[in-house]
Write a protein that binds this DNA or RNA. Structure first.
Lengths: 120, 120
DNA sequence: GTAGAACCTCACGTTGACGTCAGAGGCAAG
DNA sequence: CTTGCCTCTGACGTCAACGTGAGGTTCTAC
C-alpha cells in the first residue's frame, strides 16, 4: 500500500509517517519513481509507535528499542533501558492517579453547596 | 519567603515560578524594591500546579480551574471542564497501562533465550 | 491524453514550558 | 563600604513532533 492508505488505516498523518521514517522508526520500499510502499505489517508497526509515543517515549528512545522488538533479542543495555522506561511509566501512572484523585476532590468541594451559604 | 527559597522548597526553578505568575497561576506580594515574597501556602500551591502539569493540563486550563480551588465554588462550565479533564486523565491512565503491558511483553520476548538458538 | 488526486523533497513555522544570557539593582556580612 | 549572592525585567534560544506551503513529478480515471 502507499503512504496515503497507511495514513488512512492508522489515522496518522502522511507527514507523521514520513517523519517516523526519517527517525528510523518505520521503513518502506520505494517504487521506481521513488514512492513509498508498505506491507500490511506496517499498520501494526505504526500502532506500536503511537503507543510508545503515547507512553511518553521519545523517537530516539523508540528507535533504540525497536530492534529488540524486531529481532526479539536484546543486549543487557537495552533490557535495562526497557525496564527503566517501564518503571517511568509506572511512576507516571501513579502520578496520574493522584492527580485524578486530586481533581476529583476539587470537583467534590466545588460542587458541594458552599457551607458558608447555609442558613444565610 | 523569597523566590529562591520557594524554588528550593519546591524543587521548581526560579524561572518556572516567574512563569507561573506570568500565567496567572501563582501570586506574590512585592517588597518596596519589587522583590517577590510568598507565604507558606505558596509551597502547596506550587505542588498543585506541578501535579496538574504532570497530568497534562496546560497552563491556560489550570488558570481557568484554580479559581474553583481557591473559592471552592464552580460554575456549570468549570464543573464540566473539570470532569472533561478527569476523563482525559482516566483515558491516559488506560493508555499508559496498555503501553506498559506492551513494553513488558517486549521485555519478556527479548529476555527469553531466543528459541532459534536452541540446540545449535 | 489530460485533469486531478496523490506523491516527492526541501525547508520554514508552530506550540508550550521553560533555559539562558544581559544589564542593572538589592541585601546581609564583615 | 565593598564583596558576593540574590533578585529584577526583558528578550532570545530550545526541543520535539509534527503542520504547512512551495514547486515539481507520478499515478489513475475517464
Amino acid at each position: 500500500m502507499r503512504i496515503g492508505d497507511l495514513a488512512a488505516r492508522t489515522r496518522v498523518s502522511v507527514r507523521a509517517l514520513r517523519y517516523y521514517e526519517e527517525q528510523g522508526l518505520l521503513t518502506s520500499t520505494r517504487s521506481e519513481s521513488g514512492q513509498r510502499h508498505y506491507g500490511d505489517s506496517a499498520v501494526d508497526r505504526v500502532r506500536l509507535i503511537q503507543q510508545l509515543y503515547g507512553a511518553g517515549l521519545s523517537s530516539r528512545t523508540i528507535a533504540e528499542l525497536l530492534p529488540c522488538v524486531d529481532a526479539k533479542v536484546s543486549t543487557p543495555e537495552s533490557r535495562e533501558r526497557l525496564a527503566v522506561e517501564r518503571d517511568r511509566i509506572n511512576t507516571q501512572i501513579a502520578e496520574l492517579i493522584t492527580a485524578r484523585d486530586r481533581l476529583n476532590d476539587i470537583i467534590d468541594v466545588a460542587s458541594r453547596p458552599n457551607p458558608h451559604c447555609n442558613y444565610v
